[in-house]
Structures are given as C-alpha cells and as structure tokens.
C-alpha cells in the first residue's frame, strides 16, 4: 500500500461528510424532483402521446405539435402572449423605475410609501383581477367613470368586450399587480449606487438628467436586466389575472398560452395541452438565455 494512493484517497471528500451533505439536500431533492421535475418530464412525455380522457393512450410522436402549428387559435395565442410581454414588461419596468427613483429620495413618510407600494404585490392576483373586473364594468365601473370625469363627452368604453379594450385591461391589471416587485428590485439596485458618485457629479455640474443617464442607468444595468428577466418569465406564463378578468375572451383575444393550454387540460386533452406547456417553457428559456447573454451574465457566473 503506497502512501501516495492513501493520501489521494483521504484528500477526496470523506464519505461521511459527503453523505451528510447529501442527507441535508435530500428533502429539497425530493420536493423539487418529485413535484417539479417529474411532472415537467411527464408533461414532456405526454406531449408525444394522444392522451385524452376515456381514450386509450398512444404514442403519436410529434402529432400534437403538428396539430398545434395548424391551429390558428394557437398562433393567435402565441401572438397575444408576445404582445402582452412586449407591452406590459417595459411598462412595468419603467413605472417600477420611476417609483424606485421616488423611493430612493430621502423624504418624510418614505417607509409609509414603501409599505403602500407593497400592497398591490401582496394582494392575490385573483383578487385584484376581480377588482379590475369591477373597475372595467361597462355601466358603472371606475374606469368609465374616470373617462367621463376627465372628458365628459366621451362615451363609455367597452373594456372587456373589445379586443383592444381587453388587451389594455389585462395589461393595466397585471401592471398594477407586478410593478411593485420591479420597483423593489430596482430600488435595491439604486441604493447600492454609492452616494459619493452623485456628489462628485454635482461638483462636476452634471444636471439632473445627465446624472440619471450618465450614472444611474449604466450602474443600474445589471439589476435592470435581472428585473427584465424576472418580469419576462412571469409575464410569459401570465394566468391568474387573465383567467379572472377575461377568461381569455373576448373570443380568445386575450388567450395567453397558459390559458390556451389550461383550456385543453380542463377539457381532458392532456397530450395537446402538454405540447402547449412545452412550447411555453422553450419560449421562456430562449428569452432568458437571450437576456442573459445581453446582460453579460454568462461571463460573470464563470
């Protein structure tokens, strides 16, 4: 028995310690494996099967995907989802940034405002969806009341009954719910920018706007990218608000992919619905990877 081989054996993580580490990680592995990974893989498998309630299950390869690509309602759903993301995420990030900028200033009642900002985030989306349903009520909702207040001649808008109205309604309701989260992330980013930099910039006579565009924005970029990623992932799979507010209507005009897929689950066509889920996942993945390379996160992680 040579000392060399002995030594290298001892240098490796001792088995007992490794077992200990694994034991500590076991519960997480069980939960995530059993309740996330297995269902996801199962869904992937399902998407390759004809899996409809009361019918025998059979492998059909990519048939579900072919059927999807032939369904105009699916393409409408993809289009709506992307439009929804493209409209709501920038809106939320810009609004969130404004709120964060306000919260980052020192003024009396700042803590109170921060608490107020948290409220929309804390209220369940299903509940705030219901509130917005009332707000958009054609005959006595707050939205139309506000329009008439500002512009007495204007007729009431049929928010939830028209395509454009429903899109606007859904975007506003989602923005209400999720802007606080964006604001808080950005606030954390803002407060990490050293105060000295602003002092120096003032001495250099940079104006308010110059300070914002030359210091704040560049230094905030990593956090901005993180916020965009988080918001995009979330917006892609938007469900609660739309389900409550429009149910995907009118006529499928606000049928985001989650809603579209869910309808088929509810109808018992598991294979087809699974194919929708898989596509939704890959769209998320693509966008996140795109953002990450945009923000240069791959480099930092290494």
């Amino acid at each position: 028995m040579s000392t060399e081989s002995n030594n290298s054996a001892a240098d490796r993580l001792p088995p007992r310690e490794r077992r200990e580490a694994l034991a500590f990680l076991l519960p997480v592995a069980l939960f995530l494996g059993g309740l996330v990974l297995v269902p996801v893989l199962g869904t992937l498998l399902d998407s390759l099967h004809r899996d409809v309630t009361f019918l025998p299950r059979s492998f059909i390869g990519l048939e579900n995907y072919r059927a999807l690509s032939a369904d105009p309602a699916f393409w409408a759903s993809v289009r709506f989802t992307l439009v929804f993301v493209l409209v709501s995420v920038p809106l939320q990030v810009v609004l969130g940034l404004l709120i964060a900028l306000v919260l980052n200033e020192g003024f009396a009642g700042r803590a109170l405002l921060r608490a107020c900002v948290l409220i929309p985030w804390a209220v369940p989306a299903a509940v705030s969806g219901r509130v917005f349903e009332l707000i958009y009520n054609y005959s006595y909702g707050a939205a139309n009341w506000l329009i008439q207040l500002v512009h007495p001649g204007a007729g009431p808008v049929n928010w939830l009954g028209t395509e454009l109205g429903a899109l606007a309604a859904v975007v506003v309701a989602d923005t209400y719910k999720t802007t606080p989260f964006a604001a808080l992330l950005l606030l954390a980013g803002l407060s990490a920018i050293p105060e000295d930099l602003y002092g120096q910039a003032r001495i250099d006579r940079a104006t308010f706007l110059q300070r914002f565009f030359r210091i704040t924005l560049p230094l905030l970029k990593p956090v901005l990218v993180v916020t965009l990623i988080f918001r995009t992932i979330d917006a892609l799979r938007v469900f609660d608000v739309i389900f409550v507010l429009t149910g995907g209507g009118p006529g499928g005009a606000t049928s985001a992919l989650s809603i579209y897929g869910f309808r088929y689950y509810a109808a018992g066509d598991f294979g087809y619905a699974s194919a929708v889920s898989v596509i939704l996942f890959f769209i998320s993945l693509t966008l996140v990877v795109g953002y990450a390379s945009l923000g240069g996160f791959g480099r930092e992680a290494r």
């Binding site: 580490a21 269902p39 898989v278």
Partner: peptide, 29 residues
C-alpha cells in the same frame, strides 16, 4: 457549509426550476 459536491450547479439547478411554467406541472400534479 458542507462543501457539497457541485454546489454551484445545485444552486443554479434550484433556480432554474422556477423557469418551468406552472401550467406545465398541473396535469401531473
């Protein structure tokens, strides 16, 4: 604390799990 093997990988895997849309879990759940 425990120098678990491949811990960064585990950490990113745990984070990556949240990429899955909720709707992709419901049928198996």
């Amino acid at each position: 604390r425990l120098e678990a093997p491949g811990k960064l990988l585990i950490l990113f895997f745990i984070l990556g799990v949240s990429l899955f849309p909720q709707v992709s879990l419901v049928s198996w759940l």
